[in-house]
Design a protein around this nucleic acid. Structure first.
Length: 489
RNA sequence: GUCCCCAUCGUCUAGCCCGGCCCAGGACUCAGCCCUUUCAAGGCUGCUACGCGGGUUCGAAUCCCGCUGGGGACGCCA
């Protein structure tokens, strides 16, 4: 019986260790976030390590995408492949000699051995067993288990010599005490024949040599933990604390994949979701703080802890994510003007609009409550920065009709002399005009709105007019009057 | 099949450790109402949950056991 106890309370060192085999998945982001929050909360170090030992699928482009996504999210790291650090390098393929060294140690201690069984042989045995009994679990038969002596001149892998008795017991920060009998362990391969480590070896050696004090990862890795603890023990290394996070599944309760819609960070960025909003949704997934739901990142760096993590898997809900992200855009205390500006700007530019910072800033208060995403906000503001506005044909046809031409022109004339050209003054003059004519606001509002914005939906008329300014307001009203006049009934 | 893990509204969750304040609270979604020049935002109302069966107890969402259901893993992937 061996038991894992958390490492003592030296400054925390946590890591996020993605493999660059694809984009950054939102499930991965949550893992990264929890680690990052813990580092911030405890004043420790957040380390980014690239586990690129799957050479078939790892690419440097993927690594770049992952790093970019992390930067966009604002999850910064103190040590990593691009910034270096005292325990580098931070790409596993650049650490091959380190693993070699630890493997030699394991062999010398009799905790691992060289195995010359070929993959083909073992695959064949696996197939055979499966044919005989589809439900049986294949186990390495132990052919090379007791071989000793120098390295053979045929290719070999390094296998762990798993203990057959006893059990590994460790205390998971989320799941509590977890017991796994060693009898269920196999002589797993630690290093391939080409000298590249497999996940269990690479992760353990790196976590040891990088001084990692707490390992937090997805529950899909929970199965590896007992095996890894055995490795720590075989190496005589101090154990880190472990925390496993429940899984994020799709609506059907399956593993979240591309088929379930947007799962990569880049997709959410392109949709105009704010990083803080995405992170807020993710943190509330499997973690809670009473009834509080909306947090700033700074908030979280104080409130986060492992005790408040749940244990049940959950289902990803895009609608809830949208709602949480929207909440962030609505509130200036969560998304300040400068951040909002930085967020919408690219979406405006994508539409060929290049308003000044001041122009956007003045429009902001009217659109925070309306744009659920920055992409949407850019769409809603479009007519403010485009001359003439892009007309919605259906709206034009419905409201810019001949019988409205006169009033549109009169409104223009009436507003021409309003001063100051602000919401209150405009409203006063406008309602005054309506009273004179015995008209209801209802009858005139939509034609005016279509005139000013080209659309049937917008913020309040007078606010929009004030934003457009006198010249453009008059120009748009008179232009619309002409269109209305020319329209055939 | 074997090993590990999980189980409150459709979804994220509070409550569970330290049983009574819970005929279960918040949020999202959905439906409706109010506000209203449109669209939002905001306010209000409604729908809907302790998986099942046994214990323990005066009393169980909360403790114990079993069942059922779900997930993960069983690779020279991570």
């Amino acid at each position: 019986m061996s038991s894992g106890s958390p490492a003592s309370s030296s400054p925390s060192r946590v890591r996020f260790a993605p493999s660059p085999t694809g984009y950054l998945h939102i499930g991965g982001v949550r893992t990264a976030l929890f680690n990052w929050l813990w580092a911030k909360k405890t004043g420790g170090t957040f380390i980014l390590r690239i586990e690129d030992t799957d050479q078939e699928r790892s690419t440097i482009e993927n690594e770049r995408v992952i790093l970019d996504s992390m930067k966009w999210l604002g999850l910064d790291w103190g040590e990593g492949p691009d910034v270096g650090g005292p325990f580098g390098p931070y790409r596993q393929m650049e650490r091959l000699e380190v693993y070699r060294e630890f493997v030699d140690k394991l062999i010398a201690r009799g905790a691992a051995y060289r195995c010359t069984c070929t993959k083909e042989e073992l695959d064949r045995q696996r197939q055979e067993l499966k044919a005989r009994d589809p439900k049986a679990q294949f186990r390495y038969p132990g052919t090379c288990r007791d071989k000793t002596g120098p390295a053979p001149d045929v290719p070999f892998v390094i296998r762990f010599k798993a203990p057959s008795g006893g059990a590994v017991v460790y205390r998971d920060l989320v799941f509590g005490e977890v017991t796994t009998p060693n009898a269920s362990q196999q002589d797993v391969v630690l290093m391939r024949s080409d000298g590249v480590p497999l996940y269990n070896l690479g992760a353990v050696v790196d976590d040891i040599t990088m001084g990692i004090t707490l390992v937090a990862r997805g529950r899909d890795h929970m199965i590896n933990t007992p095996q890894q603890i055995l490795l720590y023990e075989a190496l005589g290394a101090k154990l880190p604390a472990f925390a496993h996070l429940p899984m994020m599944l799709n609506q059907k309760g399956e593993k979240l994949s591309k088929r379930d819609g947007a799962v990569s960070v880049a997709e959410y960025r392109d949709m105009g979701i704010s990083p803080a909003g995405l992170l807020n949704y993710l943190v509330r997934f499997g973690w809670s703080y009473g009834d509080e739901e909306i947090f700033s990142l700074l908030d979280l760096t104080q409130k986060f802890d492992w005790e408040r993590c749940g244990r049940g898997d959950g289902k990803f809900d895009a609608k809830k994510l949208a709602a949480v992200a929207f909440e962030h855009l609505k509130r200036p205390d969560l998304t300040d003007d400068a951040t909002y500006l930085r967020g919408v700007r690219p979406f405006l530019e994508a539409r060929g609009l290049t308003p000044s910072d001041d122009d956007i800033l003045r429009a902001l208060p009217l659109f925070r409550d309306r744009g659920q995403t920055w992409a949407q906000a850019a769409d809603l503001m479009d007519y403010l920065f485009r001359d003439p506005p892009q007309p919605d044909e259906k709206a034009v046809k419905k409201f810019l009709v001949p019988e409205k031409a006169g009033i549109l022109r009169d409104v223009a004339d009436a507003l021409a002399s309003v001063s100051p050209f602000d919401k209150d003054a405009l409203e006063q003059r406008f309602t005054g005009l309506l009273a004179e004519r015995g008209l209801e606001l209802k009858e005139v509002a939509q034609p005016v709105r279509v005139a000013l914005t080209g659309r049937t939906a917008s913020p309040g008329l007078f606010e929009v007019a004030a934003l457009l300014g006198r010249d453009r307001t008059l120009e748009r009203l008179r232009g619309a009057a002409k269109i209305a006049e020319a329209a055939t009934a």
